[in-house]
C-alpha cells in the first residue's frame, strides 16, 4: 500500500503532491470521463434490449430479465422474486398479468396458480452482454455491404493519394523545371478551400464523367490532396541530392530513383499521410452523401445516417451499428496511436 501511494505521489522529483498536481489530476480525470465516457455509455447501451433502453432512469450495465421454460407453456416465462403475505420471498414465473394482479406459478410445481399484487414482485435480472442487437442490426442494416464499400473507398483512395502525391512531391522537391513554383503555389493556396465551397461544380464534373452513383466518384476527386503534396515535399527536401546523383551515375532511371530511393526513404512521411488519409476517408460524410444515391453503394457513414433517419425509434439497432462503425478506426488508433499523435503534432505545427 505504502509503495503504491509513494509511486502515485512521486512527481517532479518531489516527495509529495503539490496543489497544482492535484488540480491537474482532477482536471484530467474529469476530462477522461467527458471525453471517453460517452463512448463507453454507447457501448454499454448497445447490449441492452429495447425494454431496457426505454427504462428511465437507465441502468449502467445491460440487464436482462431471467426466464424459465415451464412444461405446458410455449414461451419462456419471466422470473420474479415475490414477497408473499407471510414475508417469505419465493421465485415465481409469471404466466400473465391482469390489471394490478399477476398470475404466477412455481416452476417446480406448475399446476398451482398463485395470484399476487404486481407491487409485490421484483423482476430477477442478471447482467447479460447479448449480441442480439448486433445480429439483427447487421441483417437489417446491410452492414457487410457498407463495410465493404467503406473499405474499398478508404483503401483505394489512400493508395491513389500516396501514389499521386508522392510523385508530385518528388517532382516538386528534386527537379528544376518551368512552372514548378507556379504549381506549388497553386497547390498550397487551395489548402484552405473546403469542398463545401465548390460542391455544385464538382458534382457537375463527376456527373459529366459518369461517376455519379459510383464509388470511383468518391475515390478520385479528393485524391490530389494539397496537404499530402506539401507534407511529402517538405520531407523529401531533406533527402540529399547526392544520393540521386550517384544513382544516376550508376545508370538508374528516374523511375528507379523514385521507386527505390525516394519512396523507401520517405516512409515515415508516407506513413503519416496514409494514416491521415485513412482517417479522412473512413469518416468522410458530405461528399459520399452527394455522390452516392443508391443504398447498395453507401459507405458506413452514409448508411448509418440514413439508417438512423429510417429507424427513429429502434435505438437498440442504431447503437449497435454505431459501435460497429467506430470499431475499425478505434483499432487503427490503438495500434498506430504514437504515429498519429506525433504526426499531427509535427505537421500541424512545427
Amino acid at each position: 500500500m505504502n509503495t503504491i501511494a509513494q509511486y502515485l505521489t512521486r512527481t517532479k522529483g518531489n516527495k509529495r503532491l503539490s496543489l497544482t498536481d492535484v488540480i491537474t489530476y482532477m482536471y484530467l480525470t474529469l476530462g477522461t470521463i467527458v471525453m471517453f465516457g460517452p463512448v463507453i455509455w454507447l457501448v454499454l447501451s448497445s447490449f441492452k434490449t429495447t425494454q431496457q433502453l426505454v427504462r428511465f432512469p437507465p441502468t449502467i450495465l445491460p440487464y436482462r430479465q431471467e426466464s424459465v421454460t415451464v412444461e405446458g407453456y410455449d414461451t419462456p416465462l419471466d422470473l420474479y422474486n415475490v414477497t408473499m403475505e407471510d414475508g417469505t420471498v419465493r421465485q415465481l414465473a409469471q404466466v400473465r398479468r391482469v390489471g394490478i394482479e399477476a398470475q404466477m406459478i412455481d416452476p417446480a410445481n406448475p399446476e398451482e396458480i398463485i395470484r399476487v399484487n404486481i407491487n409485490q414482485r421484483q423482476p430477477i435480472e442478471s447482467v447479460v452482454f447479448s449480441l442480439d442487437n448486433y445480429i439483427t442490426g447487421v441483417e437489417q442494416f446491410n452492414f457487410w455491404q457498407y463495410l465493404w464499400n467503406s473499405i474499398v473507398v478508404t483503401a483505394l483512395a489512400t493508395i491513389l493519394t500516396l501514389i499521386v502525391n508522392s510523385m508530385a512531391a518528388f517532382a516538386l522537391s528534386k527537379y528544376q523545371f518551368r512552372g514548378r513554383n507556379a504549381i506549388f503555389l497553386v497547390t498550397i493556396s487551395t489548402l484552405m478551400i473546403p469542398l463545401s465551397v465548390i460542391l455544385i461544380p464538382v458534382f457537375l464534373v463527376v456527373t459529366e464523367i459518369g461517376w455519379n452513383n459510383n464509388l470511383i466518384g468518391v475515390i478520385v476527386p479528393g485524391a490530389a490532396t494539397p496537404t499530402g503534396v506539401f507534407l511529402l515535399r517538405q520531407y523529401m527536401l531533406t533527402i540529399p541530392d547526392e544520393l540521386l546523383d550517384s544513382a544516376r551515375i550508376d545508370g538508374a532511371s528516374e523511375w528507379r530513383i523514385y521507386l527505390q530511393i525516394i519512396l523507401p526513404l520517405a516512409r515515415p512521411a508516407l506513413a503519416v499521410l496514409a494514416i491521415f488519409s485513412i482517417m479522412w476517408r473512413w469518416n468522410d460524410f458530405l461528399w459520399p452523401l452527394i455522390v452516392l444515391r443508391r443504398s447498395e453503394l453507401f459507405t458506413l457513414q452514409v448508411g448509418l445516417n440514413s439508417f438512423q433517419g429510417e429507424l427513429q425509434t429502434q435505438w437498440n439497432l442504431i447503437l449497435a451499428m454505431t459501435v460497429l462503425t467506430l470499431l475499425p478506426i478505434t483499432a487503427v488508433f490503438a495500434f498506430l496511436q504514437k504515429y498519429i499523435t506525433t504526426g499531427i503534432a509535427t505537421t500541424g505545427m512545427k
Partner: peptide, 8 residues
C-alpha cells in the same frame, strides 16, 4: 475532398 486537417 480538400482534406486539410493537418494543415502544414
Amino acid at each position: 475532398m480538400f482534406y486539410s486537417r493537418g494543415c502544414p
